[in-house]
Design a protein around this nucleic acid. Sequence first.
DNA 1: CTCAGTGTTCAGTG
DNA 2: TCACTGAACACTGA
Length: 277
Amino acid sequence: MPELPEVETARRSAARVAVGRRIVAVRVADDPIVFEGVRPARVRRALAGRRIRSVRRHGKHLWFALDRRPWLCVHFGMTGGLHTSRASAVRLRSGGRRAETGWPPRFTRLELRLDDGGRLAIADARRLGRIRLRPDPRAEPPIAALGFDALREVPPLARFRALVHARRGPIKAVLLDQSFAAGVGNWIADEVLYQARIAPGRPASSLSSPELARLRARLQAVIRTAVRLRADGDRYPRSWLFHRRWARRPGLVLRGEAIRWETIGGRTTAWVPALQR
DNA sequence: CTCAGTGTTCAGTG
DNA sequence: TCACTGAACACTGA
């Protein structure tokens, strides 16, 4: 599920269902991994009865501002996601038959029931996600250690250039570093470099001013487009590398040129050597 | 059965 | 200090 566009989409649907509502019941899976050592009883106590003021996001991190601290913080790992159910959908289920979507979703770790009948569930199959309680999420790790949010806080070009040039290592690794740009994940890094026509293995400090301008522009364009399309990959422009990168087979081409896969920055990287320099 | 994987962190090393 | 590598985490689905 989760790079910035998926998390922003989750934030918006959570806000639609939950802002202004009170939490009337909490179901917590007894899972010391996802809850990172917080006991289920403490999670229940912190959330039950609280009113949800807003739902916020920085990079891939999501948190719920409540009427009392600590607040609820969520990171979805690789396979986590947020599910919502409106009051009307829940009524379907109480009619005897299961709702079409099924509730609670598979692999639910935390379920919140709201005072208007709406429901929120945080699910995570692989348990690489984390659910935490934090008195002041922005000021504490892990959120405090993040770089600029890649949707709302991309710095002006001069500052962007300085940040990139201060880094060692391949530009792909820099893009993936959450302390540089928060919210960029593996496919977005590849997509941005493809559209900017920059090879992923290039040392970050070697990028020219025109290249940095392209990189910054494509970073914003890819993320804004994905967010606008509600992170629905099927609707991303057909010209994007995105649609070819998953079927990893030799001979696959894009604009007539071969796609290559290799490990850069510790992650599988798809790129088009003929078009990226 | 094997293996890769929309992510992060940490230990060890240079 | 910085940065790289690899392993670990844990599990699904191809």
